[in-house]
């Protein structure tokens, strides 16, 4: 499959997905580490893609998202931001609300 299609599918099919360096257990970058720690503290399931293991995604995603750096968090298909934005949102409680409301919407049956 075309790499752009793969990316779109990942973002569409996962309510909460983070593109990062390494894994949440073994992050390879401080910004990725801090971001996944905050996400894990939100207590909801999330998907991750290790862009160090997927160099094609690493080069293609920034063009698609119009965002040059990693990590990148997407919730319900929308780019939320990188580590600095997540940190500010986490500190004022917005990230927790966003993540929990999104996963509730994803698990509750559609009307």
């Amino acid at each position: 499959m075309d790499i752009l299609e793969t990316i779109k599918e990942q973002i569409e099919q996962n309510t909460i997905i983070i593109y990062m360096k390494g894994s949440p257990e073994q992050p390879q970058c401080g910004f990725s580490a801090q971001s996944t720690q905050m996400l894990m503290a939100c207590g909801e399931r999330f998907a991750y893609i290790d862009i160090l293991a997927n160099p094609e995604i690493r080069t293609t995603l920034p063009k698609y998202s119009d965002w040059p750096t990693f990590p990148q968090l997407f919730v319900e298909g929308e780019l939320i931001g990188g580590c600095d934005i997540l940190t500010e949102m986490y500190e004022n409680g917005e990230l927790q609300t966003l993540v929990s409301e999104a996963s509730q919407r994803a698990t509750s049956p559609a009307d």
């Binding site: 970058c29 401080g30 990725s32 801090q34 580590c83 600095d84």
Partner: peptide, 10 residues
Amino acid sequence: PMSPPCRGGG
């Protein structure tokens, strides 16, 4: 805020 420490991955 402070930036987080490096984890080496590049």
